[in-house]
Simulated scan of single mutants.
Amino acid sequence: MPILQVNMMEGRSDEQKEALIHELTEACYRAVGAPRESVRVLINEIPKTQFGIGGQSAKKLGR
């Protein structure tokens, strides 16, 4: 059972996250032949205050 873990900054819509889950599942199916129903995708959303880019928080940078 493949488990794919994604860390990304908060702010994407539910529709975008659904699309990501679908596309990652399909990629795993194609790449390693894992049955789609066995693929697990975990999305960890990181608050913008806890996501650093170039020495500053994403919130401070307006991301």
Rank of each mutant, 00 (worst) to 15 (best):
Q50W: 03
L20Y: 13
Q50H: 12
V32P: 00
L24A: 06
P35I: 01
V6M: 09
D14W: 01
P47S: 03
S57V: 04
G33N: 06
N44T: 08
I43L: 09
K48A: 11
V6W: 15
G55M: 07
L61I: 00
G54M: 01
P35V: 01
P47W: 02
L20K: 12
P47Q: 01
G11R: 11
Q16W: 10
I43P: 09
A19M: 11
E18G: 11
E15L: 10
E23C: 08
I43Y: 07
G11P: 14
V32M: 11
V6K: 03
K59Y: 09
L61Q: 08
V6F: 15
T25M: 12
V41F: 04
V6A: 06
H22M: 06
R12N: 10
I46Y: 11
G62K: 07
G54L: 02
G33T: 04
G52W: 01
I43D: 08
Q50I: 00
Q56W: 01
T49Q: 12
Q16L: 13
Q50E: 10
S57P: 06
V32F: 11
I21V: 15
E45Q: 13
I43V: 14
K17L: 15
Q56P: 02
A31E: 05
L42H: 10
R12T: 08
A31R: 04
Q50P: 00
A19N: 14
K59D: 08
D14S: 10
A34Q: 05
A27R: 03
A58E: 03
A27L: 09
H22K: 13
K59V: 00
Q5A: 14
A19P: 09
N7D: 15
A34G: 02
S57W: 05
G62L: 07
E45A: 12
I53F: 00
P35E: 06
Q50G: 02
R40K: 10
K17A: 13
G62H: 08
E26R: 13
K60T: 05
E15W: 09
H22G: 07
M9H: 03
M9W: 04
G62Y: 09
L24P: 05
I53G: 04
V6P: 07
K48F: 09
P35T: 00
G11Q: 11
D14C: 04
E18M: 14
R40N: 10
V41P: 00
P47I: 06
E10G: 15
H22E: 10
G52P: 06
C28Q: 08
V39N: 02
K48R: 10
V41I: 09
D14L: 14
R40L: 07
V39R: 00
G52K: 01
S57H: 02
V39Y: 01
E26S: 12
Y29H: 14
T49F: 02
T49R: 11
F51C: 03
A27H: 04
R40H: 12
T25Y: 12
E23T: 07
G54K: 07
A19I: 07
S38A: 13
N44D: 05
K60G: 07
E26C: 10
I21E: 11
E18Q: 15
V41G: 04
G33M: 04
Y29A: 02
T49W: 02
T49S: 15
L42A: 05
A31N: 09
T25E: 13
V6D: 14
L24M: 10
I53S: 05
L24C: 05
E23N: 14
I53Q: 04
M8A: 15
F51W: 11
N7F: 15
A31I: 05
A58I: 02
R30F: 03
M9L: 13
E23G: 07
L42V: 03
F51A: 03
